[in-house]
Design a protein around this nucleic acid. Structure first.
Lengths: 224, 224
DNA sequence: CCGCCGCGTCAAGAAGGCGTCAAGATTGCC
DNA sequence: GGCAATCTTGACGCCTTCTTGACGCGGCGG
């Protein structure tokens, strides 16, 4: 089922959220601060993020913007601030919902369902098959000729972005931004190296790519 | 801009919403009850719906379900009921957000923006088809006879400008400005070269253009 | 009828991007 | 502390793309 990243420094609340979300069948990842959240998310990109505005290491809006940098997953903001201005800033920064503390658990769960429901059509695409290999996004597994293909974390991350945009051209900037972070936008070297590695592991004839195509000057495209 | 349907029986609130939404550039349609809302929506399908739960002719959840029947547009529910159960029912019925009265106008406007932002990608349909080829602007892909047509970045950029102005004449100045930059306004050579390349790749008979037409002395025109 | 301007065509040189490879740096694990 | 895997970095040659200039054709006006 869906993976939810919960970011909050209140251990008690974290615990309550974890119990309730797991009871509803969600896969839950917890993080006590923004830095931990970023690290956790790069390993396991979440389908939805619940984040408290009052984190110890970052400002609220900063957190939301940071999340928007690496994911299009819906973001629900929790906050003790009832100020209207605070809500407007968070929502305009990219948050999908704003819930003020204290809140009822049933309400939050309903808002989680609503957010996932709306985001679902675009994001989910569990298994992609080609004539040469199979990619299971949910299971994080690539199979070729019946055998698993070993991918490094970065290789996987890159492949995932391309596969989630199957058929579409993904610009070099977008790939670098999503896989290595906004600071690496100009490091096109990385793309050349890692695309070559993916081709070596996936393409029947790596010197004549059939699935991972280069669009010179623009970016790359995965075509199933 | 986006069309918003507002359903509420409180004339004063309706008036306030109308003024504020129109001031933000939205196209606003008003309805005092559920039946009127349904009629208005069939004539002018809205991009977003704001609906009060306490309507004279229908129950709240019924209204939301009714709206979901004819539209996938996001729904924001307004209600005086703070009861958690009421929120859960509305959200599970298909609402995207639930705002309790009284609320600040700025907050509501921010939630409207957030809902429209998330719904936006799905509503777009930027595919242009002709008898000879197909152009998918979102995927950056051109197909002809089932096969992909390889376009260089500049070729694509030029084609994109022409397609976005399909049917209209685009002046040479405008084309040069958008594709090569303001400094190249007089380099009409570029246009001749690149229009010819596009024709060679797209037109069935490049020497007798059918889609990429020249308007001597003026500019070029793409006719689907 | 002739000359001019604008458009289409072609090709070659210049510039920049891409694939490739391998060695050093870093990380994580035992 | 050492080993193994992974990531980063730089250099090189090839190929695509962009730029640029020359030429022919055709319509329009003189």
């Amino acid at each position: 089922m869906s993976r939810i990243l919960v970011v909050d420094d209140d251990r008690q609340l974290l615990r309550a959220l974890r119990i309730n979300l797991i009871a509803r069948g969600y896969d839950v990842v917890l993080a006590p601060d923004g830095a931990t959240a970023l690290a956790a998310a790069s390993r396991q990109p979440p389908d939805l993020v619940v984040v408290d505005l009052g984190l110890p290491d970052m400002d609220g809006v900063e957190v939301v913007e940071g999340i928007r940098g690496w994911s299009s997953a819906p973001v629900i903001v929790l906050s003790a601030r009832h100020l209207e201005q605070s809500k407007v800033r968070a929502l305009d920064a990219g948050a999908d919902d704003y819930v003020t503390k204290p809140f009822g658990m049933d309400e939050l769960l309903a808002r989680v369902r609503a957010a996932l429901r709306r985001a679902a059509p675009a994001s989910q695409e569990p298994v992609v098959e080609t004539e040469a290999f199979t990619i299971d996004l949910a299971a994080r597994r690539v199979t070729r000729d019946g055998a698993d293909v070993r991918l490094t974390p970065t290789e996987w991350h890159l492949l995932e972005v391309l596969v989630r945009n199957a058929g579409r051209l993904v610009s070099q900037r977008q790939l670098l931004q999503e896989v290595w972070g906004p600071k690496y936008e100009s490091e096109t070297n990385y793309l050349r190296v890692y695309v070559a590695q993916l081709r070596g592991k996936l393409e029947p004839d790596p010197s004549r790519p059939r699935y991972l195509l280069t669009e010179p000057g623009m970016g790359y495209r995965f075509t199933p």
